[in-house]
Simulated assay, not measured.
Amino acid sequence: MGEFENAGKLGLRDKETNKVLAVYPYKAEGTDAEINKIVRDWYYQQNCAAEDQLLTAYVDILTEQEIVSRKKFKG
């Protein structure tokens, strides 16, 4: 069983700052490698200019507090 397989919400996080860049809005299924690709591809499709951000980002499990904070900030 992979780390992400039973995760609630996933997102992308910056490697240097640990800041949440995006919350993946769907349930991801597959191996960790497949989920990593799915989330990164989704983020790239949202904004092609985000390609540089993807170089320093990683897929991570987000806490409920991070998700709520991100929604408040965005909205």
Rank of each mutant, 00 (worst) to 15 (best):
A57M: 02
R13L: 08
A33S: 12
Q46L: 04
L62F: 01
G11H: 05
S69Y: 13
N6V: 03
A57Y: 05
C48F: 14
E66L: 06
I35H: 04
A49T: 10
K74Q: 09
E34P: 06
Y26C: 01
W42G: 02
I38R: 12
A49Y: 13
L62C: 00
F73N: 15
E3R: 11
A22R: 01
K15E: 06
A49D: 12
L10F: 00
F73M: 15
Y26T: 00
A49N: 12
C48K: 11
V20F: 00
G2M: 05
V68K: 15
R70K: 14
V59F: 05
Y26N: 02
N6Y: 01
F73E: 15
Q65C: 14
V23Y: 00
E5M: 09
K27D: 06
E34G: 09
T56Q: 14
R13H: 07
E29K: 11
K19R: 06
I38P: 11
L62N: 00
V23Q: 00
L21Y: 05
V59A: 05
F4W: 04
V68D: 14
D41I: 10
T31A: 04
L54F: 05
D14R: 05
L21T: 02
E29W: 11
A33C: 07
N6D: 01
T31G: 02
Q45V: 09
F4L: 06
V68W: 14
E66G: 07
V39F: 02
S69H: 10
K74L: 12
G11C: 09
Y58A: 13
R70Q: 14
T63D: 12
E29C: 10
L55V: 11
I35C: 04
G11M: 07
N6A: 02
T63I: 12
K71W: 11
N47K: 12
T56P: 14
E29H: 12
Q65S: 14
E5A: 09
A50Q: 07
N36Y: 12
D14A: 07
T31E: 01
A28P: 01
K15D: 06
E51H: 15
V23I: 02
D60M: 09
K72W: 13
K37R: 15
G11T: 06
D52W: 13
G30N: 04
G8P: 06
D60I: 06
A7L: 03
V68L: 15
N18A: 10
G8M: 02
A49Q: 13
V68N: 15
L10K: 00
G8R: 04
G11E: 08
N18V: 10
Q46M: 10
L55Q: 07
D32L: 05
Y44E: 08
R13D: 03
C48M: 11
Y58F: 12
I35V: 07
I67Y: 00
I38S: 08
I35G: 01
E34C: 06
A33N: 08
A22C: 02
Q45D: 11
C48G: 12
K9G: 00
K74G: 09
G11L: 03
Y43E: 08
A57L: 04
L12V: 02
M1V: 07
T63E: 12
E51L: 14
V39M: 03
K27E: 08
W42E: 03
Q65K: 15
D60C: 08
V68E: 15
K19C: 08
K37W: 14
Q53N: 11
G30F: 01
D32Q: 05
W42A: 04
I38E: 11
N47T: 09
D14V: 06
G2W: 03
R70L: 13
